[in-house]
């Protein structure tokens, strides 16, 4: 059983982090020219939507928005006994020449991002892919890093970072969970 250990971010801090990342994205790319947003399922999707909403609210731009289901690109399919449910990918624009802001909730081993990069490349040749995550908890197993980070949270392997989002869980917060003794 997992039990809640510490609350790291509340609703307000989640929103503030996304807003800051939006500004960093603007700064890095000198505006929003060719910028598109792609969320990784499941919790990267509502985060991508929020980022998209903030660009609309503060910059007045309606950026193209898509989402990825990386299930079919996982590197552990042969080692898990049950096939995970495939929910589907939706990229309603040509990625070639675009700057893709790839959004996920937690960056951990980097394996999900590896799968997402492979899947994106199968849609065309983007000009760049930049990674935005709400939480970077360390313990990378691949040479992957985030371009935009909401919060760095050093963790141990035993801990689990739970990102709860209103769209899925009914409320916004980030907590550290730990195995109960």
């Amino acid at each position: 059983m997992l039990k809640e250990k510490t609350e790291i971010m509340d609703n307000e801090r989640v929103d503030r982090s996304i807003k800051r990342m939006m500004h960093e994205i603007l700064e890095r790319n000198h505006g929003t020219q060719e910028v598109v947003i792609v969320g990784i399922k499941t919790r990267g999707v509502p985060l991508a939507k929020r980022l998209h909403h903030m660009f609309k609210e503060f910059e007045g731009v309606d950026l193209p928005l898509g989402y990825l289901d990386i299930t079919l690109y996982r590197d552990d399919l042969t080692t898990i006994s049950q096939q995970p449910v495939v929910h589907g990918t939706h990229i309603p624009f040509d990625v070639t020449g675009k700057i893709i802001i790839l959004v996920d909730d937690v960056l951990y081993t980097g394996r999900t991002v590896r799968a997402a990069l492979d899947e994106l490349i199968d849609f065309g040749r983007p000009a760049a892919i930049q990674l935005a995550v709400l939480v970077d908890r360390g313990h990378r197993e691949l040479p992957i890093r985030a371009d935009f980070v909401g919060k760095n949270i050093p963790t141990s392997h035993k801990e689990v970072i739970a990102v709860r989002l209103e769209e899925i869980d009914g409320h916004n917060k980030v907590v550290i969970m730990e195995e109960e003794e």
Partner: peptide, 21 residues
């Protein structure tokens, strides 16, 4: 399960690595 696979058949690059090997 077939719904997401239909999307793959409509992509420009109709190839996924799922059954490699």
């Amino acid at each position: 399960t077939a719904v997401p696979f239909k999307e793959i058949t409509l992509r420009p690059i109709k190839k996924i690595p799922t059954l490699r090997g």
